[in-house]
């Protein structure tokens, strides 16, 4: 297959700066978003994801100004999410330069929103972002595949089965699933590979694996499990890993990647 698997650095943005926390908390400053975006493009990033991590909690729209500055300066696709509530919010981010917009909490509250946005903008620019957590008591009803959807920036459990929600969201109009393991987010313990495998097998749209990348082998494991793209934030920000090193590792093991 000639389609390259994508390596996607994620910029978690708050107040115009890039931040990073562990398990969605303890945010710390990690740099200027435009500077980082340009560096990543030069290093071979296949796409960028910008998440406004404070948006939902503070009830404000994602920072369109940051998106405008970034998309003006780079020539690769950009996905933006965080606190998007309605069709107008999606339109505003697309107008600011986003190629795709991710819905998370609001899509759970109002699944028809995905359909309304897809009808207007096309499924190819609608992403459902799913924050999933392993159930601590997997036998407790309602029965599911073992992961539940958590909304509100990782703070509000929903009892919704993560795999089932991914299927419904794709049917409703999401053209991609951005799948984050809250248990692994920021831990560098590796992606939640069974979660990725379960979702990738259940949907026919691309799946982006997120949460827990530490070593190049983690990226390979997620891709081997069926992820179409792998996302990481702090490993790239802190230069513990380069995008090139991840691609080289995966390419040597038979994964199709793109060289800039």
């Amino acid at each position: 297959m000639a389609l390259a698997r994508r390596v996607i650095p994620c910029l978690d943005v708050a107040g115009g700066r890039v931040v990073k926390g562990v398990r969605f908390e303890d945010l710390r400053d990690a740099g200027d978003p435009v500077e980082l975006a340009r560096r990543y493009e030069a290093e071979g990033a296949d796409e960028l994801t910008i998440l406004d991590v404070t948006a939902t909690l503070e009830g404000r729209a994602a920072t369109a100004a940051v998106v405008e500055r970034i998309t003006e300066h780079i020539g690769i696709p950009v996905t933006v999410g965080g606190g998007v509530r309605d069709v107008e919010g999606v339109r505003a981010l697309l107008a600011a330069g986003a190629d795709k917009v991710a819905l998370n909490t609001q899509a759970v509250r109002d699944p028809a929103l995905l359909g309304r946005c897809a009808a207007r903008f096309g499924v190819q620019c609608m992403v459902v972002a799913i924050d999933a957590r392993r159930r601590r008591e997997p036998d407790r009803p309602p029965a599911g595949t073992g992961w539940e959807v958590v909304v509100g920036a990782g703070r509000t459990p929903t009892d919704l089965d993560a795999v089932g929600w991914a299927v419904r969201a794709a049917a409703a109009g999401a053209g991609e699933v951005l799948l984050t393991s809250i248990d692994r987010d920021g831990t560098h313990l590796g992606y939640d590979v069974p979660l990725i495998a379960a979702v990738a097998a259940a949907v026919s749209v691309p799946v982006v694996a997120s949460g827990g990348a530490g070593h190049p082998a983690d990226f390979l494991a997620a891709l081997a499990a069926g992820a179409d793209a792998v996302l990481a934030a702090s490993q790239f920000h802190d230069q513990r890993l380069s995008i090139g090193a991840v691609k080289q590792y995966c390419a040597h093991r038979g994964i199709e990647v793109r060289w800039p």
């Binding site: 390259a4 994508r6 991609e176 691309p206």
Partner: peptide, 30 residues
């Protein structure tokens, strides 16, 4: 093979065209 087709795929020229003159074949596009 997922749909939407999303990402960088190889494009091979099947006919010469002035717009493609600077580009090798195949080249990856998004």
């Amino acid at each position: 093979v997922k749909v939407p087709h999303m990402g960088w795929n190889q494009v091979a020229w099947t006919t010469s065209h002035p717009f493609l003159a600077d580009l090798g074949s195949p080249t990856r596009f998004y």
